[in-house]
Design a protein around this nucleic acid. Structure first.
Lengths: 93, 93
DNA sequence: AATCTATTTAGAAAATTTTCTAAATAGATT
DNA sequence: AATCTATTTAGAAAATTTTCTAAATAGATT
């Protein structure tokens, strides 16, 4: 689903979106719960959620008329891998 | 020096800048050497270098009339730490 | 079926980022 | 001292991102 690193790193480059990710560490939260933590409209938070979703960092789950979001840890692993290239990278290159 | 994560993640969110970082894995390179790998003006690459420098991801070193850039691995460690928060984060929180 | 509740989508304005051209800087060479 | 070489800075244009308001969607309740 995620188009690649460009999209994922762009998603990670915003304070609000990183805050959302931290917020989801201990389990899923609805769009409304997430939005209530910020001083911006629900529409704007929804925009940020869509960016995180496109980047593959979160997934959604509909229940009643709520939409719950939760972390997709596998993409975090991928980003970690990218950083691993800088750990004593001299050997393989 | 780096103002914090916002700046560092913003710096990492651009393809050109991530490419520069990869390019510096096997040692320092001058601004000109770096610029020659891209299809953009030296001035533009200089702009990207300044963003990476402000983010603390690279440092510069003047020699003759060249300016050499190299990775500052300690800031990479810091970013890795941020990601570590998502690794089985349930216990401590 | 009408209404309510939670959320997203569309479209526009504001803010930020990226890129360029032209000029500036600064050390090295003639 | 004049010039050359490598690089950056300034300022503007173009592109992208963030935010808002208003309207749309869709499932739940009355």
């Amino acid at each position: 689903m995620p188009m690649g690193f460009q999209e994922t790193f762009k998603a990670l480059s915003d304070d609000v979106r990183r805050e959302i990710l931290l917020m989801l560490r201990n389990g899923k939260k609805s769009a409304g719960e997430i939005a209530s933590c910020f001083d911006m409209t629900n529409a704007t938070v929804s925009y940020h959620l869509s960016i995180l979703k496109k980047a593959g960092l979160i997934t959604e789950e509909k229940e009643k008329n709520y939409i719950f979001y939760k972390l997709n840890t596998s993409v975090f692993e991928d980003v970690m891998m990218w950083f691993a290239q800088f750990k004593d990278g001299k050997k393989s290159e």
